[in-house]
Design a protein around this nucleic acid. Structure first.
Lengths: 220, 220
DNA sequence: TGTTTAGGTTACCGTATGGTATAAGGAACG
DNA sequence: CGTTCCTTATACCATACGGTAACCTAAACA
């Protein structure tokens, strides 16, 4: 709607084209910034208290606005939550992709993954996928989120399988081995906040050691 | 209240003492059975949909009664949920205790624990502690549940520490090693339902292998 | 200056929920 | 048969929440 309108104006008053466009661009940008501020605030509150315990009023209050204003940026609370999951997926998947592109044996890449995965998990958006319940979402959105999770799982399984193929990882049940990995890693999200004595990197190192030890192929 | 009343009766009509007591005993027992039926039904529904998504009306309906009847057995929804956690704690702790009492090195007992822990996790009550959110509970109850969790964690840490002491487990960060263990195990609760191709025992074996491999002390 | 428009506010609605007041039903006892 | 509990159901309440309708403001444009 706003797009067609701007098109009409641009052709109507060509002289003002640049200003108009700048103005619109600026508006669009500000709007997007506000939208992201809403999203980040909501994500933090959702993580802290669980999404259904956070009301739209409270999100708005935290941002210094009122509830109906939120509906300028998101159509519903569900949409906010879903967007949190999408951001989370993006963070995690991009992390995985960067590992996938790296060289090395399957085991090496898996180690790199474990070491790196610790970081997004302790991030606001990164932890959403792990700590928030997709059950809060309406069916369609929930299905999509579960698809994100399934895809992540598949990527890790592939990594393990490739390690077995290239001989760096001991033959084992790929599915269960992946569950062990992702379980231990994802569980970090359950305790990390409440415990400050270990640095993220320390955790990454220790987890890498513990979780890969059982996978190293024994050279006969 | 009902206790003092029964006392009065017993002294008042001594002849009827046995019958009265039998009658009261029977009542008490039936009441307890019903209470437990409520609890089990609620637990199953909570696990399936998340506790806050299950209304008292729905629990009652599932049991073929009406909402106010529930309040004969539990003072509040919170109390039902809390009781679920208590049952869960009992199941898990009793499992741990039986392992603690067994002989063997620390590593052997830890292996036994992993193998055994898989089972309660896939049980209704056993999975409550892992899958339901204690955030749903009012502060006091929540504090107690968190204490349960802390105690379980401490027991496993002790097991690991003893293994290091007796030389069966490689020296490592006890806290983080325990997190790896419990993380991988607890995560089972997140995927077990939706996947039926592996038997519980298969999972137990594979997890034991994967999770202990990194802990075996290298004999120098 | 008048007009449009996005983004904000106030006030409100419908609904669902946990929980309760009250009374009816029914078994156990005298 | 009357009385006393215990259990259950009907009807209800207060509250909180997601969402909306209607209006207002201020800036951008002509």
């Amino acid at each position: 709607m706003s797009k067609s309108k701007s098109d009409v104006r641009r052709t109507g008053t060509r002289r003002r084209e640049a200003d108009l466009w700048n103005s619109e661009e600026k508006r669009r940008k500000e709007r997007e910034e506000k939208r992201m501020a809403v999203l980040l605030t909501a994500a933090e509150m959702f993580l802290e208290r669980g999404s259904h315990r956070v009301s739209m009023n409270e999100i708005a209050h935290e941002l210094g606005i009122t509830k109906p204003s939120l509906y300028n940026y998101f159509a519903s609370k569900d949409e906010i939550l879903f967007e949190c999951f999408r951001q989370s997926n993006e963070v995690i998947v991009s992390q995985i992709i960067s590992i996938e592109k790296s060289a090395g044996t399957g085991l090496e890449r898996l180690s790199a993954f474990i070491r790196a995965y610790v970081r997004p998990i302790t991030t606001v958006y990164g932890s959403v996928m792990i700590r928030l319940e997709d059950r809060e979402l309406p069916d369609e959105m929930r299905t999509e989120v579960r698809e994100y999770k399934r895809a992540i799982d598949a990527r890790i399984r592939t990594m393990v399988a490739q390690g077995i193929e290239d001989g760096s990882i001991e033959p084992c049940d790929v599915k269960l081995a992946t569950f062990v990995l992702l379980g231990a890693l994802n569980w970090i999200g359950q305790w990390y906040d409440s415990d400050g004595s270990d640095s993220i990197d320390t955790i990454g190192e220790e987890f890498t050691r513990r979780l890969t030890a059982g996978l190293i192929a024994s050279r006969k």
